[in-house]
Amino acid sequence: MLHADVVVFDFDLTLTRWETAARFFKAALRAQPWRMAVVVLAAPVLLPLLALRRTRRLPVRFAVWMATFGRSGTQLDRLAQAHADAVFAAGEAVFIEDAVACLRTHLANGDRVVIATGCWEPVARALLARGGLAEVPLVASTLRPWLGGWVSDQHCLGPNKIPLLTARGYPPPWAMAYTDHHADLPLLRNSAQWCLVSPKPECVRRIEQALQVRAPILPWRGQAAAR
């Protein structure tokens, strides 16, 4: 049965202007220089891992672990909130106006809107709250403690979004989906309608090739992909 009123939004670069988790963890590393120093010292070992598909995520996971090492869950939640506060205090435009307007239009029309993102949940939640979107349901990535730091637990990315959305009461198929990335192809396959938000040409090519349709594009972040 089609869930005719469920609309799924990606978060990073669909609603926001940058990759929010990456920015948060970089800030967490830079806040204490010794953490960044460890990452730099490990770079000769980590950088070659980027060349292989099966190991390319390891450097990122190490950086996240180093950024969270010695910090409790409560401390990290507070750090996420402080990060969101600092970003908004600096007057930075986190959210894309057209994207937020579209989301609010769906809400006004009575649609059930949910945000599904690979961003770490406390960071996404803190930014949404500061952006006046705290009421929108969020399905996001989680971390788990490991060897004094924190590592990925449930990563809400690509095909993983489907079971995570289902577990939260939003099973497919969905009425509409918005994303900027071809990693969300499984999401699009399970949506009656969908749009790409300022996608890169490679994203358009891969999605159009897989779905055999011309991709509808919304140039919310500026110039859309060349057609």
Results as ranks from 00 to 15, higher is better:
1 M>T: 14
8 V>F: 05
8 V>S: 02
9 F>T: 05
9 F>G: 03
12 D>W: 07
14 T>E: 02
20 T>M: 12
22 A>G: 12
25 F>L: 06
28 A>C: 10
28 A>M: 11
30 R>W: 07
34 W>T: 13
39 V>W: 04
48 P>I: 00
51 A>N: 04
55 T>N: 05
67 A>H: 06
67 A>M: 09
70 G>S: 07
70 G>Q: 06
76 L>N: 03
79 L>P: 02
81 Q>Y: 06
83 H>P: 08
87 V>F: 04
90 A>S: 15
90 A>K: 14
90 A>T: 11
90 A>Q: 14
93 A>I: 10
101 A>K: 14
109 N>Q: 15
110 G>D: 01
111 D>E: 08
116 A>M: 08
117 T>I: 10
121 E>W: 12
125 R>L: 02
128 L>H: 05
130 R>I: 07
150 W>H: 14
157 L>W: 15
162 I>D: 01
164 L>R: 13
165 L>Y: 08
171 P>K: 12
190 N>C: 09
191 S>I: 11
191 S>E: 00
198 S>A: 09
198 S>E: 00
198 S>H: 09
202 E>G: 05
202 E>Q: 14
203 C>P: 01
207 I>V: 15
207 I>P: 03
212 Q>I: 10
214 R>N: 02
217 I>Q: 11
218 L>R: 15
221 R>I: 03
